[in-house]
Design a binder for these strands. Structure first.
Lengths: 217, 217
DNA sequence: TTGACAACATACCCGGTAGTATGTTCATGA
DNA sequence: TCATGAACATACTACCGGGTATGTTGTCAA
């Protein structure tokens, strides 16, 4: 049952372990990593610390587990479009739309991934945790590379126009990720509504990248 | 010496108080609010807690002080362009450029403001701190309203084109703010280099908003 | 000269939190 | 049926960090 993505092996998916990851993601998103106590996560599970420490050796490892879980899911979402034939700009449209949709649909996981990257940029705590975070950030970088290569190709093909690619990739991702900070799903909200938001964001970024004409997603 | 901005009164600027605010901003940016201890801030000052608690009644108030200080400075920066005559799109160009420049020049303060808004969205701690944060977030919202009205007018004047303004404002700000997460000033870096980065970001957003032609800032 | 206060430093308290050590229960295979 | 280990719960420790209470030093006005 072990799935392998980009050389990173996922442990066999334990039911109870997944529940812990989900509860941890909720807590980390609600209060941030350091403001979240392991007891908080346990309370949300209706359990105690014992259960959590049975699966994760430390709080940092719990966080890393959520980080990895979130990255695995988002990688899975864009997987169908990674080797898409045809113009790169068409591939980018698909990638960007799916990515933005996932930011909203898996908002909690996405924000934990975000905080993980932030923690890494700051310089984390102990060398061990540092190494684990390094690996995960590399994982995350290989994800953004998919987009980087896509827009680079699209520029070569004359469909996009921008100057520095590093600046552009950062700005693009910030815009595409933006809903993780302000989107809140309403009760009984239709998928179409979410897709409409995603279309507007992707459209914004599409024009920002120098895309011509309309987006028609 | 008390300056008043939008009805919010700034306390007389004490020298030592400013030093504390700056050191606190550095620490909050480096590790985040809850991971930063008051002793950390004191250490950075080469002092002890006593000095900090002499000026600020609590850690939350210290954070709020940095928040307000940062907002005051950024408000001051865009002040010259608030009542700018002529087409709104020209006003927006100035506003956006100055804003993005300040994001890089005052990166530490900008990130504390960012975290303050994040904390508010999550729902902060005690009712008192909640009230103080509420006021500061209103302060911050009045800032984003400047931009909101600017792009609304520019759309009316036919220079911008977008659908939902709430989504657009959020996406726009995320893109303009993006350098606070990845920009690092190199030693001996010229102002021109920073301006070049700002131009690229503003250009990206300008096109995203449906701006026509080149930006020529 | 002195006393009063600002501007800190020192020493301490105590609640919360990561982590551990030790039960307890239940399923499962021999 | 019994023993063994997984899957937790309970109880505890050690420490850190926010906040306070209490010095100490310099300055300045009367």
């Amino acid at each position: 049952m072990a799935s392998t993505t980009l050389g990173i092996t996922e442990l066999p998916a334990d039911e109870s372990r997944i529940d812990i990851l989900q509860a941890a993601a909720d807590c980390f998103m609600a209060r941030g990593y350091s403001a979240t106590s392991v007891d908080d996560v346990a309370r949300r599970l209706g359990a105690t610390k014992g259960r959590i420490y049975h699966y994760f050796p430390s709080k940092a490892d719990l966080f890393a587990g959520v980080f990895r879980y979130g990255m695995d899911r988002i990688f899975l979402a864009v997987e169908p479009y990674r080797q898409m034939p045809g113009p790169a700009v068409e591939q980018w449209k698909k990638l960007a739309f799916v990515h933005t949709m996932r930011m909203m649909k898996s908002k909690t996981l996405a924000r934990v991934v975000w905080e993980g990257v932030e923690m890494h940029l700051r310089g984390a705590t102990t060398p061990e945790q540092r190494l684990e975070l390094d690996g995960l950030v590399n994982y995350r970088n290989s994800y953004s590379d998919i987009f980087r290569e896509s827009i680079a190709r699209a520029r070569d093909e004359g469909d996009f126009r921008f100057d520095d690619i590093a600046i552009t990739v950062q700005t693009m991702f910030m815009a595409l990720n933006s809903p993780i900070f302000w989107y809140v799903q309403r009760p009984g909200e239709t998928d179409e509504h979410v897709e409409n938001i995603a279309r507007q964001i992707v459209g914004f970024v599409y024009r920002g990248l120098g895309g011509k004409g309309e987006l028609n997603l």
